[in-house]
Design a protein around this nucleic acid. Structure first.
Lengths: 191, 191
DNA sequence: ACCTGAACACCGTTCAAGT
DNA sequence: ACCTGAACACCGTTCAAGT
């Protein structure tokens, strides 16, 4: 039961890791999950083997990006919590709208949020737990103000947002994720 | 602008086509989209080439299954419309619950409903249009009865059900598609 | 006309050789 | 220690040969 020994990482390796993540973000955001590992490697200016040295599988690489996104979601939630003046329900709804906009702009994150692969989610577990806790506080505040339904919980958010991610990718008449999101927000509101 | 000539199809070819569809339904329902074309061919007892002779791509084969599903959804909707005694909102909600149960039991359909591929949807266009029209009538009846929100439309259904399909595949704490569906149904109810 | 399955193409992943 | 990229494995798709 020893913890992983904390050995120093070579400067060039660290730099490569950053380059790979930046390249992956760009490549997946543009092309979605069909982007290839070779594309990521080329964009990062490294060999494929180096990508695999840092991330054992494509899913693990995506998982790292997902973890990053959840940290952004958390930052969003912190900012929303810091807003003591706004109407609590609106503050929460705007938080969801901003997170949704982040997802909509990034095909990679969008697909990853719908991924059924364990490996994709593994890295995001802690940030995801933090986000749910922050959501719980935002929700409690809105429920205390009486503007949010009391039978709605923070645990309901992930699957609704997962579902929203799915419709973001659909084209054709009738598909409008902003409308979808507003329906969900309206469902949470006390009426 | 001539219509496709109606030439007779050889009996063995027709039989193979049916076998392939039955095999595809079984194989994709069990294994989801990761099931291979070779699996479908083996299960159907034909060569892969025969599968490709009937369906030009994997997406087209999936598209055929999706079209079948939409026909089932339509039959469901017709049955719901025929129910003149039930409370109209409950009749509609039960219709959604039954359709959702069909999807949940079939990993292939589930993934196909979230597919962003044109080819998957192409065959289902007519049945999908019929379904939306039937939903429109079910919804109108519930709205006339005053139990469904007047600002909710049949065009809202596809993306909500697409989103629901996404969460059906997710495992882990907090994912419960029945809860997700009930939240959606509750959002449609007049309160 | 239709069927078969070996061969091809594509992309995730590995590993022997290099620094 | 880490990097490279050719080679391998897997699976969707094709096509030459068969009936």
């Amino acid at each position: 039961m020893s913890t992983t020994p904390e050995r120093p990482i070579r400067a060039d390796a660290r730099r490569n890791r950053e380059r790979i993540l930046a390249a992956a973000r760009a490549v997946f955001a543009r092309s979605g999950l069909e982007a290839q590992m070779d594309d990521v490697a080329d964009t990062a200016g490294v060999g494929v083997g180096t990508v695999y040295r840092h991330f054992p599988t494509k899913d693990a690489l995506l998982g790292e990006l997902v973890a990053n996104r959840f940290e952004e979601f958390c930052a969003e939630a912190e900012a929303a919590l810091a807003d003591e003046d706004g109407e609590p329900f609106d503050v929460f709804a705007d938080h969801l709208r901003r997170n949704a906009a982040l997802v909509a702009a990034d095909a990679g994150t969008r697909h990853a949020l719908m991924s059924e692969s364990e490996a994709v989610w593994a890295h995001a577990v802690p940030a995801r737990a933090v986000l749910i806790e922050l959501n719980r506080r935002l929700i409690a505040r809105a429920q205390a103000a009486g503007t949010m339904r009391p039978d709605f919980g923070a645990d309901d958010i992930p699957q609704l947002m997962c579902g929203l991610s799915a419709t973001m990718g659909m084209t054709g008449p009738g598909f409008d994720w902003r409308r979808h999101l507003e329906l969900l927000i309206d469902a949470m509101r006390s009426r």
